[in-house]
Amino acid sequence: MIPAAFDYVAPSTVREALAVLRSSAGDARLLAGGQSLIPMMRMRLVNPGLVVDLSRVADLAYVREHDGGIAIGAMTTYRTIETSLLVRERFPLLTEVASQVADLQVRNRGTIGGALAHADPSADLPALMVAADARILTRGGGRGRSIPATRFFVDAFTTALRETEIITRIVVPAPPARTGGSYQKLANRASHFAIVGVAALVTLDAAGVCSRVRIGVTGAGPAASRAQAAESYLAGRAPTEAALEAAAARAGDGIDFTDDLHGSAAYREHLTQRLAFRALSAAVERAG
């Protein structure tokens, strides 16, 4: 499998990259880690006239402290995130999720910005991004935007990004004290993508009541989304098994379940509920 011919440019600044995008009249694709884009180009499912390689852009690969949380440069690889001590300390669930993505070689190369922009409906990371109240910072078209993850994933392989916009940074706020998190997925046996994946973050107050609940779901529908009905059911309640079950039963509310070779809509709905229960239970345990 061999991609069609294209022109290639490797700008050294975001400004330069944006200028190229603006002048390419929609015929350009940004190349980050390339772990999804290159296979699609090899299959000739995507045939851009111009590839804009972001790997030479200065200062897009980092993990930094940010307001007690973390800021991650768009070109940071899964592997860097997986092995970052700062991430492990501030947001261990991100370490856990990053380490479950694909395989070592793909994680060495694949980037957080590339993954979010690709918006594969079965990718792991988006579930956590929406659950963690992450914000996706972009440049292009004026002063740049800070897009909440919950509004970023629009549809399968479709995001809120404009054609002339580049993700520069992902900001993940630190969860409150006494927050536990868990990600539960059932992986496809061929692609290892999530048939369904559920990320849960639960914060307990001094009385042991769930003060804050965040649930992100991937794989179930066309785009990663928050399970708000389940969240609001559990918030303010003690995390008894019955409460967790009742919340999990609402985890699929509002999702337009995908029905395909890898799972029927009914199965995905069931998985969403069961994996939500497991993720919530484990999160509560860890919030301890």
Binding site: Y8, A10, L31, G34, Q35, I38, P39, R42, V51, D53, S55, R79, L104, Q105, V106, N108, R109
Partner: peptide
């Protein structure tokens, strides 16, 4: 798989220019 700057990389999912 080859090592690129010490990291295992799938060389069929990478362009030589990169």
């Amino acid at each position: 798989t080859v090592l690129v700057d010490g990291a295992a990389v799938k060389s069929c999912t990478s362009f030589a220019v990169q």
